[in-house]
Write a protein that binds this DNA or RNA. Structure first.
Lengths: 127, 127
DNA sequence: TTCTAAAGTTCGTATGTTTTGAAGTATTGG
DNA sequence: CCAATACTTCAAAACATACGAACTTTAGAA
């Protein structure tokens, strides 16, 4: 088992952050970590999530977040505790994470509202 | 040539925006479009960019931006004029794009400063 | 110590996405 | 109609992602 690598704060990139958070599962994990202190471990998140995501897939998602510099992972006994690096990132890219998470919350709430009335609606303009 | 499709404002997602802007070429295109009114066409951007990016690749990048809802493309004669949809997006996800573009600028300026002194420096903590 | 369970990680493969040269499509001007 | 311009589409290779199976690490029990 290769040792966990975390990028130094200076090696964290905007592109890396955006790519990591452009996945619905990863942004949900990150939101859980940032929001409360719940879902700190891999299986903790697996239990909480409504969708059934395999362990191996979740492990890769945590790795992606870690290598993008968004979270820090530490082994505690048999489990892996994950925490956000939001304070560091806030210093390097002020306002970035709050704006993304705010937009994410807004979208989530909008979907909740939409789910009550119209089960599925698609639209697209042409030209 | 299939007609251009632009998502309606309600179908634009945070994940889609983040994914589109997680590519260095696309975020550079978007920055050009948002910043000045330069680089509005595909070949216009090709001339401005320092890297040599094939036309077909650029075309795909413009498509990705368009389908994420970030830009609007209109044919004017033989060329394609691209404009940002930032006003619409600002209404739907307030603060998101400004924060991303601000972080992008900060990173760009930092790279410019770094390029003068240390040509290449990598660091990573372990554990 | 050895066994077993729990929590993650890694590997291999199937599947999906991205890049790019070559060929194709609109549009304009001669 | 023909040539030039400015893209777009296609197809194949390169690269990335998902997930089951097998593996590693740690803790606690026997």
């Amino acid at each position: 088992m290769r040792p966990l690598t975390h990028p130094s704060i200076d090696d964290i990139t905007v592109e890396g952050i955006l790519h990591a958070l452009s996945d619905p599962v990863r942004v949900a994990i990150y939101a859980q970590l940032a929001d409360a202190d719940s879902a700190r471990t891999c299986s903790n998140f697996q239990q909480i999530s409504d969708r059934c995501i395999p362990k191996s897939t979740l492990s890769q998602h945590f790795r992606a977040l870690r290598e993008a510099g968004l979270i820090r992972s530490e082994r505690h006994g048999v489990e892996m505790r994950n925490t956000t690096r939001c304070a560091e990132i806030e210093q390097r890219f002020p306002g970035l994470l709050p704006a993304i998470m705010q937009a994410h919350r807004a979208q989530f709430e909008e979907r909740m509202r939409g789910a009550k009335k119209k089960p599925a609606a698609r639209k697209a303009t042409t030209g």
